[in-house]
Computed example of a mutant assay.
Amino acid sequence: MNEISAESMQPTLTGSSVELQPLREDHAQALVGAAADGQLWNLKLTVVPGPASIDAYIARALAGRAAGTVMPFVIVRRDESAQSGRIVGSTRFWKIDRANRKLEIGHTWLAESAQRSTVNTEAKYLLLRHAFDVMQCVRVQFTTDELNDKSRAAILRIGAKQEGVVRHERIMPDGRKRNSVRFSIIDDEWPAVKAMLEAKLAAR
């Protein structure tokens, strides 16, 4: 899928510190470079592409976009840091259900040096704003590993509510049967969540 067709199927979302650009095949090397910052492909609680898996990772994402169920992005810093202009991770809309106006935000990962910064907060804000204000979603959900305390805390910090545990929700690459925790934000909650996130970003 070329850049023109990618842009026609999903937008670029631009904030003060980050820009979310539609994923392309030629992002492969930059994504592997971002994942190398912390050797993220060795993590057991999430799946991050490495040199051997990046082509399949991108191919699956682009196939999902062609099917209309996925919008995959690369996360690009655009602040005053030494990493400005660089791809520092990836995220996506997936499980897009237009009939029921709902989707999931997931497959999010950040280079180690971009963690514990405003990058994740602003990326989530841009995604949520597009989902609720442009796509008119009534529900946005998040799913993470039951064992991933860091991810669970981060999802709660952006205003999502925990709904429950989905047992044996997926099988991880190492064969572990993963229990997943499901969170969501619904349209009635979005105005308050939006105001909270905008206050967080303004105070950085």
Rank of each mutant, 00 (worst) to 15 (best):
N2Q: 06
E3N: 04
I4T: 12
S5D: 06
A6F: 00
E7Y: 14
S8F: 02
Q10N: 03
Q10A: 04
P11W: 03
L13I: 03
T14Y: 11
T14Q: 15
T14P: 09
S16A: 12
S17R: 10
V18W: 14
R24G: 12
E25K: 10
E25H: 12
A28T: 06
A28Q: 12
A30S: 11
A30M: 07
G33K: 11
A35D: 05
A36P: 01
A36Q: 14
G38L: 06
Q39G: 11
L43M: 13
K44G: 02
T46H: 13
T46V: 15
P49K: 01
P49E: 00
G50Y: 09
S53K: 07
S53E: 14
S53R: 07
D55L: 13
A56T: 04
A59Y: 08
R60E: 11
A63Q: 09
A66C: 08
A67H: 08
G68R: 07
V70N: 14
P72K: 09
F73H: 02
F73C: 04
I75R: 08
V76L: 07
V76N: 04
R77E: 13
E80R: 10
A82E: 15
A82N: 02
Q83N: 13
I87P: 09
I87G: 06
V88C: 05
T91N: 05
T91M: 04
K95E: 10
I96H: 05
D97P: 12
N100P: 10
N100L: 13
N100H: 15
N100C: 12
R101F: 12
E104T: 06
W109N: 00
W109Q: 00
W109H: 01
A111N: 01
E112F: 04
A114D: 01
S117T: 13
T121K: 07
T121V: 07
A123Q: 07
K124M: 03
Y125M: 07
L126P: 08
L127E: 02
L128D: 08
R129S: 13
M135V: 00
Q136F: 12
C137M: 14
C137D: 09
V138R: 15
V138S: 11
R139K: 05
V140W: 06
Q141V: 02
Q141C: 03
T144A: 13
D145T: 00
E146F: 15
L147H: 11
N148Y: 05
N148F: 06
D149E: 15
R157F: 06
R157P: 05
G159R: 11
G159Y: 09
G164A: 06
V166A: 15
V166M: 15
H168C: 09
E169Y: 15
I171C: 14
M172A: 02
D174R: 10
G175S: 07
R176A: 06
N179C: 10
S180G: 12
S184Y: 09
D187K: 10
W190Q: 04
W190S: 01
P191V: 06
P191R: 10
V193E: 11
K194R: 15
A195R: 10
E198W: 14
K200T: 12
L201V: 01
L201K: 03
R204G: 09
R204M: 11
